[in-house]
Design a protein around this nucleic acid. Structure first.
Lengths: 151, 151
DNA sequence: CTAATAAAAGATGAAAAGCTCTTTTATTTA
DNA sequence: TAAATAAAAGAGCTTTTCATCTTTTATTAG
């Protein structure tokens, strides 16, 4: 796996997709999201239910229902998604997995690793969920596994 | 989990420990390594067997046997351990898990994420396996989960 | 108020990661 | 050459992650 869990990767791509589709109003259904980010529908449904419970996206049942975001969510940082799915270990954890690694009690790569952690934190906290809508509209950013998949 | 798999965290700590103990000659047994880095012995044995097969550490059977490293290994980069255990995804993978993410076909966080990946790569390629022996000897760096565990 | 819609919830299953225990093989030294 | 030592290999178990399918609940439009 990469830096984030697969579940978290799906979550980020889905939230970007939902933000992109519903920033101007409306809702988008799970089928369309799954198709739009090229992910397994039922698995993604579970992830989105969880994100909805945690307030990272919004949802409505019934006809015309679906997932959507409001202005508040558009301005939330990417970190909200990552924390909801993977927890905050990525912001605070030791590179060698030592629970008690700290400034006073550092692991060998503590200081170098802290710099990396901080950079990740910076990316996740300063980037807003709604920050990619322009690129996505213009088609110069992509959310699917492969380029030029149908739909 | 963190940036690296748990297996990889054990591997790095174990190799640091072995490097520290055997840089001046001699071998160190699996029991001592497991105790020294506070890890499950039998599981660590599997990891070290694999690292040995891949040339990241050396081993000898029988009395006075154990794991050890030579000068060549002491000068190998941390990246050798990470690649042997987790593969090279961490150096090249997309932040959102997209297989075809690239400069021409970027995911939304492609450029920011590339900077992070490069910093990780820089840490892992410029840091040498034997680079922590002084700190470890002086006791100002630590490899155990908790401070002040016996042995 | 009923039928259709769409998310929520529940139950279950497959695969990978993490971990343990036992047996075998190689080496050494006495 | 026999006994002791220590890694290597094999088999199997547990937990977590990833994934699917089915049923239920809420909402809305007609």
């Amino acid at each position: 796996m990469g830096i984030f869990s697969k579940t978290c990767e799906y979550a980020m791509r889905a939230v970007f997709f939902i933000a992109h589709k519903t920033a101007g109003g409306g809702r988008v259904g799970i089928k369309e999201v799954a198709l739009g980010i090229d992910s397994p529908e039922h698995f993604l449904a579970k992830i989105l239910q969880d994100l909805s419970r945690r307030g990272v996206i919004q949802s409505a049942k019934g006809p015309n229902g679906g997932f959507y975001v409001d202005e508040v969510i558009l301005n939330m940082p990417l970190a909200s998604i990552v924390e909801a799915v993977d927890g905050s270990d990525i912001f605070t954890g030791c590179g060698l997995g030592l629970e008690y690694c700290s400034e006073e009690n550092p692991c060998p790569i503590h200081h170098e690793f802290k710099a990396i952690r901080n950079q990740i934190q910076d990316l996740l906290k300063t980037t807003k969920i709604g920050g990619f809508n322009k690129e996505l509209n213009m088609g110069i950013a992509v959310l699917k596994k492969q380029k030029n998949l149908p739909q």
